[in-house]
């Protein structure tokens, strides 16, 4: 039983990471109808940046926080590059093809750059917690996973509160629902879009710092995480806010269960299967609403 609870908890932690990255996709998708197909690689760059500050051993909390901040800062810088190099010029052409291809191009550039800087090796990454487990009622829980769940939930809830309560947050919502009307109301739409990308990419980069200690840091770590997060976005609904949490938990748990009861080798398949099933039966996601496109 305790093994099962442990398994569930690992699934929840993994799911929250997916949800966090997916949350980032949804933020930019809502404001600009685009998302970053190199987000996984941004996550990886965030992890490497933090790794060079935190190191591979248990670290003091301030150092770890510094690493987290550095990753977030890098994410913000990457967001500006992404927006200026890949998204903005593509939006002018009006076709989806351009921005998808441009962000894919940035992805392979980022990955190649990481390989040149840090090589193709795999690195362990430190965190405020060591290798020990917490024993809660006979169940061993990895404190790093607790940290992931708490941090991911904290970031998402903080952003939702910001979006609903603050004036700028309301501007983000306004841009998401109608760009032209928002612009006419005096909202600086390009600034809001820029903000959404900065938040999105910073979240992804911080995600790398959270997942690094649980998995491993390498130049290829982002591909799978980024891809599964698309699935989570679609499961929750690309235009739903916190639906991604449900999506993330569903995917995280189904992966752990697959690994446990079917085969560890196939643990990456539920994401794809769920993605296809959701698109077939609930194309707007579990929590998304169908939108009517004006002609």
């Amino acid at each position: 039983m305790s093994a099962f609870i442990q398994l569930v908890f690992s699934g929840v932690a993994l799911g929250m990471i997916y949800a966090l990255i997916a949350f980032g996709y949804n933020i930019t998708f809502s404001t600009s109808r685009t998302l970053n197909f190199s987000q996984g690689d941004f996550l990886m760059l965030g992890a490497f940046t933090a790794l060079s500050i935190i190191g591979s051993k248990q670290s003091a909390i301030p150092i770890w926080l510094l690493g987290l901040l550095a990753a977030a800062a890098l994410g913000a810088v990457l967001a500006v590059v992404l927006l200026e190099v890949a998204i903005r010029p593509a939006l002018k052409t009006g076709s989806d093809v351009s921005w998808i291809l441009a962000t894919l191009a940035l992805g392979i550039i980022a990955k190649n750059a990481a390989e040149r800087i840090w090589g193709t090796d795999e690195y362990p990454m430190g965190s405020p917690f060591g290798r020990g487990y917490w024993n809660i009622g006979g169940v061993s829980i990895d404190p790093k996973e607790v940290l992931v769940v708490a941090a991911a939930a904290g970031v998402m809830i903080a952003f939702e509160v910001f979006r609903r309560k603050s004036l700028f947050g309301k501007a983000v919502t306004a841009v998401a629902s109608d760009k032209d009307a928002a612009s006419l109301m005096g909202i600086n739409v390009p600034v809001v879009i820029m903000f959404s990308f900065i938040v999105s990419c910073a979240i992804a980069a911080m995600g790398g710092v959270l997942i690094g200690p649980i998995q491993i840091v390498s130049s290829t770590m982002g591909a799978l995480l980024g891809t599964k997060a698309y699935a989570v976005s679609v499961i929750g609904g690309l235009n739903s806010g916190l639906g991604v949490i449900a999506g993330g938990l569903i995917l995280g748990l189904s992966e752990q269960l697959t690994a446990r009861y079917i085969s560890t080798g196939y643990k990456d398949t539920p994401g794809f299967v769920l993605l296809i099933l959701i698109l077939l039966f609930r194309p707007n996601g579990l929590f998304g609403k169908a939108t009517i496109k004006k002609v």
Partner: peptide
Amino acid sequence: MIFGGLLL
């Protein structure tokens, strides 16, 4: 990197 740049 070169191919990515080429695409952009």
